[in-house]
Design a protein around this nucleic acid. Structure first.
Lengths: 217, 217, 217, 217
DNA sequence: GATGAATGAGTTTTCATTCAT
DNA sequence: TATGAATGAAAACTCATTCAT
């Protein structure tokens, strides 16, 4: 029996607990500094068990990674469906909101994402970067193209560049949110939601209209 | 005598070599995975010496960190001086170019910056984040305010937000540059410089004029 | 029910497969490094089953060992019968050929024999050494005695010593064969058989006539 | 500083003790089953020290191996010199005696030799087998050739085969000595020396005159 | 009778830090 | 002041064995 199967055969509650602890550990310490010792101690199970289930520390990370990818995919699919009929800038707004919601519901997963971006020694990093790139190529580019076609965006826009610009700005917006809000403690309170919503609106306006004034060069 | 002083008393060449090797090690492996063993081996000095000079691995990192901060400060001061008379968008352009140049000249330092952003267990991380924040507050905000004052930027601009927006977009631009170009190997060739310059121009235009078309909501 | 009985009650095919895999594992890795994990994986049965059948890893080795002893006994009995009427040196020749054939047909069993000779931590090692000793006492000594009686061997021969001498020389001949031929890959090709046959002939002549020349001391 | 140097810098007494314990451990358990844990426990030093000195368990074995090779080389050189003027069979006699003496003085080293012959997973095994082969090629073949030249050996002798024959028979003689005498306990008592000497004499006579009687086929 | 999840002591190896020389 | 030997806790991983289902 393959290691992965071993894990899948466990009872649901135990699987969930292991997944939770693993996500937390990798989010807190990255891959190499994550400690299987710590995990099994927190789980109250024998060290050998983890290796029965996953074969190696890396095998455990695979589980965590694919779980995370699945969550992100699900979230993106929903936004895409829900905003199919709306105009470009509303779609950007909704995407940012969805991002905020995701971070709020899965902060540890988002932490792992942040770690993987600039820590070279993560397993599956190549696949991860490909997935990230796909977001820009498969999600944002069509959005921009549709926006240009409907005349909601300037017709002389460099689509590639615009997609990168959006990717950059949105990603960084979420990063800033994650760092400034989540470090403080926990989830979204009503006041913060309003604050965030307002920020998103201003953000979208900057994207739409730029910063230039009358005397702009 | 305090550890730090011991280091300062060394001859200049030795100090430089220790600094170089340390920067390289922390850039390549982060803090915890950086190995004092490897460093002393490369330096050809005794392991004990490092602890005489710096007291601990963390003490060594302090040196590296403050060295990096100094480099960044220096670079920013120069751009500020050189562009004092130019208009807002040209200043952004020059800032981005300066960023590219910095990464090109100090790629290992930039690597450490990238690692520190999302790896919680770096020493001095709180101070680091404060410094990063200062960039936006002390460097970009005045820039935006001046731009608004001269009418180069819209007068209804939320200065705070605009500074964050700029910070985000510029940082991400440099990150993308660092990943796509430096991974490949080494420094800037002429062809790439032209490519980069052109990209910067388009970028600045997006910031100035936005993406909105005639039908924008 | 005793463990051993549990195993004997299995269907013949399964028993054979378990035996084969166990022989292979012990031949490849010795006793302590042999892995029950690997065996059950190759067999496609549950790990617990091995312990139901044999009680322990050592119990499993007992099966393998006695199986091997049986094979050797059977082979020796046949040679003895087939060469009952021939002269001493032909019997030695036939014994060596039978040895070669045995190694060729049961290379893994011979590997286990080689491992057991000088690895002290094999179970059953005392019994094994006794069996090996019996070969010399029960098989070779009568051979020598008969040879002396028929005048095919010198009458002043120290029988004990001659048996040991034969044992040594024959065993080492087979070891050399096993190492040089089996390492290369697999069974006996015609060319090799001729080569071996010729070597055996020369060998037997050395045993018969010695090395001494006219000036021998 | 290279690991090996680290060890050489230790004080002589400590080096000797480490070497002794290592030889004993590898002789008793082979390579893979030898336990660094056990060794440091017996030595009363920290586990890390072994890895400072040798880099790895394998590095430690290298020391042991090359130490053993040196001992054997030294012993062979002496026999060669001491018997330069004597006839062939006396040289064989002296070689066997030297072998007995070696086993008696370095029984653990001889144990390692025995283990390496048929345990495939020893480090340096290829080099070891080459060394063993050299014994036959560089030591025994010249002996046989000289014997033939002086007429002490039959002129029609196949030199290659004769060397192999001698190698086999001598090696096995020593093996038998090692197993039967050393397992019992310790060194050579006078009675045993006489016994051994007598056995060697008979052995040499078998080699010289063969076993054949008047009726030999 | 068969299963396979759970165990925990075992393995080698790394490494920051200390301190006597 | 510089050295480098010594330390010991920590790391990932293996594996024979047990036992509830």
């Amino acid at each position: 029996m393959l290691p992965r199967e071993r894990f899948q055969n466990l009872e649901s509650q135990k699987k969930q607990k292991i997944l939770d602890v693993a996500v937390d550990e990798f989010a807190s310490h990255g891959f190499r500094e994550a400690s299987v010792n710590r995990m099994v101690q927190r789980l109250g199970i024998a060290k050998g068990s983890i290796f029965q289930y996953f074969g190696s520390k890396e095998g455990l990370f695979h589980l965590v990674f694919h779980h995370a990818v699945e969550l992100v995919r699900h979230s993106l699919r929903r936004v895409k469906q829900d905003t199919a009929e709306t105009d470009f800038f509303e779609r950007i707004r909704q995407s940012l909101l969805a991002g905020i919601r995701f971070i709020d519901q899965h902060p540890r997963v988002y932490h792992i994402y942040l770690k993987m971006i600039f820590q070279e020694d993560f397993p599956l990093r190549a696949e991860f970067l490909k997935q990230v790139h796909l977001f820009s190529a498969e999600y944002l580019k069509p959005l921009v193209e549709a926006g240009v076609a409907r005349g909601e965006l300037r017709s002389d826009l460099n689509v590639e560049m615009a997609a990168f610009f959006l990717d950059a700005i949105m990603d960084r917006f979420l990063q800033a949110y994650a760092v400034s809000f989540l470090d403080a403690g926990a989830g979204l309170y009503q006041a913060q939601i309003e604050d965030i919503t307002q920020k998103i609106d201003e953000f979208v306006r900057l994207i739409r209209d730029g910063m230039g004034g009358d005397n702009a060069a």
